[in-house]
Design a protein around this nucleic acid. Sequence first.
DNA 1: ATACAGCATGTTTTCAAAATCCTGCGAATA
DNA 2: TATTCGCAGGATTTTGAAAACATGCTGTAT
Lengths: 149, 149
Amino acid sequence: MFSKSCEYGLQAILYIALHARPDRKVGLKEIADNQDIPAHFLSKILQILVKYKLLVSVKGPNGGFALYRKAEDITLLEVVSAIDGLDIFERCGIGLKHCDDAHPCPIHNKFKFLRESIRNTLMKETLADLIFAVEEGKTYVTLKHLISE
Amino acid sequence: MFSKSCEYGLQAILYIALHARPDRKVGLKEIADNQDIPAHFLSKILQILVKYKLLVSVKGPNGGFALYRKAEDITLLEVVSAIDGLDIFERCGIGLKHCDDAHPCPIHNKFKFLRESIRNTLMKETLADLIFAVEEGKTYVTLKHLISE
DNA sequence: ATACAGCATGTTTTCAAAATCCTGCGAATA
DNA sequence: TATTCGCAGGATTTTGAAAACATGCTGTAT
């Protein structure tokens, strides 16, 4: 569905949304360790999210990353489109170069509907919605629950 | 969504369903030329579809490929799962290794629904359904319409 | 039987995503 | 103001899908 970069980016921004506080940025290494993501690779992904103004970064001691906006105001679609672009929502299902509404491929309409469903889901989900369920213990973003078992 | 191999495989089996007759197999090169697919690469993909008994192949003069079963009895899901496997329908949306119903990631349930939607669509669509619309001129699998314009 | 058309199959090469390596730069603290 | 922490960002290596190459094998027709 998404590239590995995008998956890492989603994990990371969720981790940041969960653990950053106004007085506490979240360090790259902390995210990489907890989410089992190659640190240098994650660095580049977070740079993208900073450039797209989804994250802020602070250098120096006690530096790190935090959300640029409130968690309520960041949707998954913004994160995905920043990293993977909008191509996944436009690409023909069987890879035809000239497939569009005027010259649809055999699965064009069905896939258009499915892609729109995905897009709508990503657009509706904010980081705030998601971390709320994590804080309630209903969902998980880290592997910590595996250690305690 | 799908790998390039899978996209090529879908294009090819649709082409075969459209052009093969009981007395006429469809040659590899014909498919490759009309769909603009690298011939040697397509060869390997069609081998997979033969192995999975979705196609039959005949060697020698006037040889080529034809559907193993009637077009009514082949679904897109069979083609996709033969080439790409079922991983796309099972993989966690944010790439967590240990995401399941018991320990769901924040988007697990939403994505499960979306993946099931895709799976159901692919399961419901048979080759016969799709080539019918092509023969009616409502949809397209080749690039021929581009030449005549 | 022999030639040849056309699929089968193993190997190599290309290319982009993923991962790693290394150096630079800015902010905080002593 | 010197040091160090931690992000920025360029360059390189690795990996696997995609593509290209080369050869073998089988069935048909002459």
